[in-house]
Design a binder for these strands. Structure first.
Lengths: 247, 247
DNA sequence: CGTAGGTTTGAGTCGGGTCAAGAAATGTGG
DNA sequence: CCACATTTCTTGACCCGACTCAAACCTACG
């Protein structure tokens, strides 16, 4: 499902050029014109497929490439010195993974496919060269990286200020808007990640996540059967996600 | 105190060129050679001074410049939709503030001087131009931004996995290592921020911060009189900062 | 020298963690 | 396709760390 549109639809995997990839407006929005895109096209290795649970790259290994998610979903996590995992992000089609290691020797995090996932590999040395000649691309990369910083700051806010219910409402809404951006249903979708991953990402215990899901369901806010989620009351969830700091 | 070394030490504020700034190896390490530095030098407006509590820039205002801290200290924070503040970082001399808004229309956060602070202003439009011709600078900027992402991820870990004691130990050690980097004492320094800011940053209540400080003092780990802090047992603090996940 | 902001200390409460155990989904091999 | 194994998810009971509320104490600065 949600296969990028391609000119020559060959085999099960679409060999799309950047120029014709339906995700290009997410992965590399506006900034680039057609001639720029075709230059980028040449440095990208397409059609790298990972099945559920496979590592795309892992922490402390040499950093060579960024990856654009084409289909499926990816989680990134870091292993702390004390040995436990902290998920730092979920990446959906059209999003760029690996920016936290840009211009660094080694990967700062580990990326794992949450389901069968198709990515485009973008070698950084080639990318950095290309950036020299394409001002638009440079600007765009700065933009993506700063967005990544802001995302992480948002996560910090969530973790330090919000209750379990607020965190989960916020995550559901974030996923919702990302599905919407891809022209998919914003109210009915499949969670790519397990409850465990949600808990880890949001700094909660799995049990708490489970409890909140059933509570939301009892309140009529969502309908959840396993990973199949339907958002019934978007407004109510939005209100909840904001939190009740000073009413 | 901790004034950058300058050739011509004029007035109270040192008008140092990037070339001779004692912080250049932090703000723009290694990557640049002397001729690169002098090019950078020309786009930087030096000697912007802010006194305690003054805003350097504020959220949602047009983004024009990044700022390098020369002396003093800065905190950045975001105001959430629900109206409360979340401090996203503290910036010490040699560190770059504002990267979370790179190539964005408006500032994503607010930066406020914690004490009398001296910064260099770096206009981004000039910076982006300069980056075209200086590959080393581009690489370095990518590096700084990715570091910023990693810092924020580290904060997320702290907030979601660690106890109050662990968070505070980690903050003290972070400050310690940053003082050390500047060739200042790593065990005896003045906190640039109030307990309140520490609490906000670490997702704790002020009272908790205060209690932990006194607890640390009673355990002989630190000696604290107001903002004057002495780290007595670095190793013990390091062990504590790691947390007791799976012993 | 007085007032406001910052800091400390105490008492009480609760959200969410832990532990334990069952239910559902998913996978595996015969 | 079914029986069994394993992982994932849910539910319940209990407990603790950190928050809240409240009040006293400092300290800096006009």
């Amino acid at each position: 499902m949600s296969q990028p549109i391609s000119i020559r639809q060959q085999s099960s995997v679409a060999k799309t050029s950047c120029l014709h990839c339906s995700l290009s407006n997410l992965c590399l929005p506006l900034a680039l014109d057609d001639s720029d895109l075709s230059q980028l096209d040449e440095v990208v290795s397409r059609d790298r497929v990972f099945s559920r649970g496979e590592l795309i790259f892992s922490q402390s290994t040499p950093f060579r490439s960024c990856f654009a998610v084409k289909s499926g979903a990816v989680k990134t996590s870091i292993i702390t010195e004390s040995g436990d995992e902290q998920i730092t992000g979920f990446f959906m089609p059209g999003e760029l993974v690996g920016l936290d290691s840009m211009s660094d020797e080694a990967h700062a995090s580990t990326a794992k496919a949450l389901e069968r996932t198709n990515v485009c590999e973008i070698p950084v040395d080639r990318l950095e060269e290309l950036v020299h000649v394409l001002p638009g691309l440079q600007h765009h990369l700065f933009h993506l990286m700063s967005q990544e910083i802001r995302n992480s700051h948002q996560l910090s806010v969530l973790l330090s200020k919000n209750t379990a219910e607020e965190r989960i409402a916020a995550l559901l809404l974030s996923l919702s808007s990302r599905f919407k951006r891809r022209k998919l249903s914003s109210t009915h979708f499949n969670l790519p990640m397990a409850r465990n991953d949600i808990a880890n990402f949001l700094g909660l215990a799995v049990e708490t996540v489970s409890r909140v899901f059933t509570r939301f369901q009892n309140q009529g806010l969502i309908r959840a059967r396993g990973r199949d989620i339907e958002l019934l009351e978007l407004e109510a969830l939005q209100v909840m996600a904001l939190g009740n700091s000073q009413p």
